[in-house]
Every structure is written in C-alpha cells, then in structure tokens.
C-alpha cells in the first residue's frame, strides 16, 4: 500500500502532477475525513429530511386549517428560495440571535455550530420536498385497496403497515431518489459556512499545497462518480421495486 502511495510522490517529482492526497498522509487523512463528512452530512440530512417529510405529511392531513397552512408555507418558502441564501439566513441571521455558551476551553461560542446550521438548513430544504412526496404517495393508494384490506380483517394500523405504506413507498421512490441525489449535490453549499466536507477540505488542501488543478479534477471526478453511482443504484432499485401496471 505504501509503495502505491509513494508512486504518486515519484509521479510528482517526474511530471509535476501533485496528488498530495495520495502520498501525503496528512492530506490523505484530511481528504478521507472530508469524504466521510460529505457522506455523513448527506445521510444525517437524509434521515432528518425523511422525518420532517413524514411529520409534515401527517400535519398536512390535520383537520386544523392553520396547521395545514403553516406546513404549506414552509414547503413553498424552502422550495422557492436559493438554498445558499437559506443557509446564510440560518447561519448568519438566525445564528446571530442564538445565545452563546462557554465551551470546555472557556471560550464563548454559539450554542449551534456551523455543522448544526448546515444540517438544519439542508434538512429543512430537502424535507420541504419530502412532505409533498409522502403526501402524494399516501394519497395514491386507492381507497378501495384500503377497504379491501379492512374487509379482510386488517386493523387500521396493520392496513397501514402491510398495505398502504408498502404501496405508497413504491410510488414515492423515484421522487425520493431525485431528492436524495439533489441533496448530495447540495451538501457542497455547506462549504460556504466552513463545514469541512469534501469541497471545503479540497480548498484547504489546494491552499496549502498549491495544487489547484489536481485537486479540482479530483474533486469533480469524485462527485461525478459518487452521484453517478448513487443514480445507478437508485435506478436499479426502482426497477426492482416497480409493480406491473401500477404507475408509469
């Protein structure tokens, strides 16, 4: 393994192609951390956005008019404004209103760090899409199917678990996947508030090692491969889940 890495040092000496992320263990570790931070940010935002989506979809079915309106307002606000401005708004505008606390070193710092704000803003951004997706998915299950299940003696809860949700999930899947792919791409915005994900780390490395072209190319390829893989896996999953005669 070490030989493999050293080969890139040789490559640098010979050709000037400076891939510090391969032969320099410090840069390598930074990059690996950045990569996992991107994955971590994507996953945690995915999980939170799904929760937000489910709660939102549930609230949208509320009999209270104002509850529905507020959820609707949230959806529209987040769907129709630039996510970067949302993030700035959260981090700078709302962050400035947050109380400060003393940390373990005795330095005053905000309760919520840039990490928290990135997670919050990205989750709310992706969640706004999920509310609509889940809602349409549940509506998509025909009333007659529910009745059929109930007439077979399923309780309301079991109807949901065994009939409504599995069907709704299949209907939601393509839209959810679109949203997930978008989310992964949108995590790059966290760069703007200094969250050390891939783009940010790459930026640090090229500032230190002055190897912008190499890092830029690497970064572009890394994202294209990551997102491309994701799209591919999702497409296969969708094909496997597709029900004949159900939907497009």
């Amino acid at each position: 393994m070490e030989d493999f890495f050293q080969w890139f040092r040789w490559l640098y000496d010979e050709t000037g192609i400076n891939l510090t992320i391969l032969y320099d263990s410090f840069d390598r570790e930074r990059m690996v951390r950045g990569f996992f931070n991107t994955i971590y940010l994507s996953l945690i935002c995915l999980a939170l956005s799904v929760v937000i989506g489910l709660v939102g979809a549930w609230l949208q079915g509320s009999p209270l008019k104002w509850t529905r309106r507020i959820v609707q307002g949230y959806i529209q606000l987040f769907r129709n404004t630039p996510p970067l401005v949302q993030m700035y708004f959260f981090f700078f505008a709302l962050g400035s209103l947050m109380p400060r606390m003393e940390n373990e070193y005795g330095i005053m710092e905000p309760v919520l760090s840039n990490w928290h704000w990135a997670i919050i803003s990205l989750s709310f951004f992706a969640g706004a899409f999920n509310v609509e997706i889940f809602r349409s998915g549940i509506e998509a299950v025909p009333r007659s199917t529910v009745e059929a299940a109930e007439s077979l003696g399923y309780t309301r809860l079991k109807t949901y678990i065994y009939v409504v949700l599995p069907l709704a999930f299949r209907v939601c899947l393509p839209a959810l996947n679109n949203n997930l792919v978008n989310l992964v791409k949108t995590t790059t915005l966290a760069y703007a508030i200094a969250v050390p994900e891939m783009l940010y780390v790459a930026n640090q490395i090229w500032s230190d090692s002055v190897n912008v072209p190499e890092m830029m190319t690497f970064l572009l390829l890394a994202y294209v491969v990551l997102v491309g893989l994701l799209v591919h896996v999702m497409n296969r999953w969708e094909r496997a889940m597709r029900l004949p005669g159900y939907g497009v």
Binding site: R79, N80, P174, N178, G247, V248
Partner: peptide, 25 residues
C-alpha cells in the same frame, strides 16, 4: 390525474429536467 400518477410524472419529468420544479405563489 390521480395523485400517484401525478407524483410519478413529476418525478420522471424532474429527472429529465435534472432540477426540481419551481412552484412560486
């Protein structure tokens, strides 16, 4: 259109467009 079909259509359209749709009011 029934909601499921609407959703699937939108999903497939968003996939071609590559971007989510804007629904400003």
């Amino acid at each position: 259109l029934p909601p499921g079909e609407r959703l699937l259509r939108r999903a497939s359209r968003e996939r071609t467009d590559g971007v989510p749709r804007l629904t400003l009011k």
